Amino acid sequence: MPPAPRLKRVCVFCGANPGLNPAFAEAARAMGEAIAARGLGLVYGGGHVGLMGIVADSAMKAGAEVIGIIPEVLMRREVGHGAITELHVVGTMHERKKMMADLSDGFIVMPGGVGTLEEAVEAFTWTQLGIHDKGIVFLDVNNYWQRMAELLDHMVAEGFVKPEQRPIADFVASPEEALEALARFEAPAVKSWASPQQR
Rank of each mutant, 00 (worst) to 15 (best):
G159D: 08
G45A: 01
V121H: 07
I70E: 03
P163L: 10
P3E: 13
H88I: 04
H154N: 03
V55W: 05
G91L: 12
A64R: 14
M148Y: 12
H132W: 03
V73T: 10
F185H: 09
V161W: 10
E164F: 08
I69T: 06
M31P: 00
E33I: 14
R6E: 11
G106A: 13
M1N: 09
I131Y: 02
M31I: 07
Q198G: 04
E122P: 03
L42M: 13
V12W: 00
A34F: 06
P196S: 02
A30V: 07
F171L: 05
V121F: 00
T125F: 06
F160M: 12
L139D: 02
K61P: 10
M155H: 04
R166G: 03
E119M: 05
A56K: 05
V137T: 10
S104N: 06
H132D: 09
R9W: 10
L152R: 13
L151E: 01
D57R: 15
G80W: 04
E176Y: 02
R77G: 02
V73D: 11
V89H: 11
L117K: 04
A25L: 01
I67E: 12
G45C: 03
L179V: 09
Q146N: 04
I168V: 13
A64P: 06
W126Q: 07
S58N: 14
N142S: 08
A28M: 01
A194L: 15
A181T: 13
P188L: 06
M93V: 05
E118Q: 15
L179M: 08
K134N: 05
M93I: 08
S104W: 12
E158R: 13
V12H: 03
M99E: 13
L117V: 03
R96A: 00
E119A: 07
P2W: 07
L117P: 00
L117T: 10
L129S: 09
D105G: 05
D57F: 08
A56N: 05
E177L: 00
G112D: 04
E180V: 14
L129D: 10
K97G: 02
G82H: 11
G47P: 00
L103R: 15
A183Q: 14
W193L: 14
W193P: 15
K134I: 11
N142Q: 09
